[in-house]
Deep mutational scan, measured.
Amino acid sequence: LRLEVKLGQGCFGEVWMGTWNGTTRVAIKTLKPGTMSPEAFLQEAQVMKKLRHEKLVQLYAVVSEEPIYIVTEYMSKGSLLDFLKGETGKYLRLPQLVDMAAQIASGMAYVERMNYVHRDLRAANILVGENLVCKVADFGLARLIEDNEYTARQGAKFPIKWTAPEAALYGRFTIKSDVWSFGILLTELTTKGRVPYPGMVNREVLDQVERGYRMPCPPECPESLHDLMCQCWRKEPEERPTFEYLQAFL
């Protein structure tokens, strides 16, 4: 395994491009020591290896001592969030954005069929390849993070704006909380990567959403798509659509 080009840095580690087995181009995620327990990670990795779908980033291998390494397929255009905010983002029109959403829903419909939960679905965790191919990455890892700023769910590192209220408040993460996050991801797509709930801080978002506030229809977004977002944001988790439905609708 060779680490060649550093692609990015996040709160919990770095991402590199490299070569595996001398020939395969891969992405390598390294986790800061202390982010998660190697034992817990190894268990999760076994499950992650079983998830194989064309719209999920394929896991190739893991190094399960500290520092933990995760070796996955390489996606040339990086994260969907950076892609939307970058040069190419300007030229993306609604049909392409909807197609990308459908690809993500397709990957998540598979996660749904496998009775698995992602827990951290957002544009930053979707990767883009050639020809606007989108794949879901980092599934299941969020559960293992041991950082206090994260586990408190009120901490600075927790993605509260993407998280369903029952998950943020009571830790009830299910495929239905993933559906909520998918609704937020749809706003990221239609606004080219704007942060959700602009002008609001995490605490406010939690309070307002509890009181029934939902983001309005983004500019140039059809009402039918906003309606779909609002279905994803129904207060009762069981009233939210399935990913199978979302995939078919898109």
Rank of each mutant, 00 (worst) to 15 (best):
T88G: 11
A101N: 04
R172L: 04
F243A: 15
K50H: 14
Y170I: 09
I28G: 12
D99T: 14
G13D: 02
I70H: 12
L144Q: 15
V71Y: 00
Q154V: 13
G8Q: 00
I175S: 15
H226N: 12
L225C: 03
V136I: 11
E223V: 11
A137S: 06
T174R: 14
P165Y: 10
A105I: 07
M108V: 14
Q46H: 10
K85S: 07
T174C: 13
M215A: 06
N115V: 05
R122N: 02
P198C: 09
E130P: 14
R122S: 01
E65T: 11
E204G: 05
T30C: 05
M229E: 12
C230P: 03
E4R: 15
A156S: 15
R240K: 00
Q9S: 08
V26F: 09
P237N: 14
V179T: 13
M100T: 09
F249W: 08
T191L: 11
L186C: 08
V133L: 11
L31I: 03
Q208E: 12
L127V: 13
A142E: 00
T151M: 12
L169K: 05
F158L: 05
I70M: 03
L56V: 14
Q154Y: 11
C232M: 08
E65H: 11
S37L: 07
W162A: 03
P218V: 10
P33T: 11
A137T: 03
P95E: 06
V128K: 05
M48T: 02
P241V: 05
P222T: 07
F243R: 01
N125Y: 01
N21M: 11
P216W: 07
Q231N: 02
L132I: 09
S64E: 10
E87G: 14
E220G: 10
R172W: 06
L94C: 07
A152R: 03
V195T: 14
C134V: 09
F139Q: 03
Q154C: 12
M200L: 08
K50Y: 12
V26K: 05
D99W: 14
T163D: 00
L80S: 11
Y170F: 08
F249T: 08
V128H: 04
P218C: 14
A124I: 05
V195P: 13
R203G: 10
A124G: 05
R203V: 14
E210S: 11
R214P: 02
I160L: 08
N125S: 00
F243S: 10
I70K: 00
P196M: 05
M229R: 01
R211F: 11
G78C: 08
P198S: 07
K6I: 15
N202S: 04
L250T: 07
E54K: 15
M229L: 08
L225Q: 07
W180P: 02
V117I: 15
A152S: 05
K29E: 00
M36L: 03
R25L: 12
T163E: 01
V117M: 05
N131I: 11
E210Y: 12
P38V: 08
G212P: 02
Q43C: 07
K55H: 13
L81N: 13
R122H: 02
C134G: 06
I28D: 00
F139N: 00
L186Y: 06
L169V: 08
Q58Y: 08
P241Q: 08
R52M: 12
A101F: 03
R194G: 09
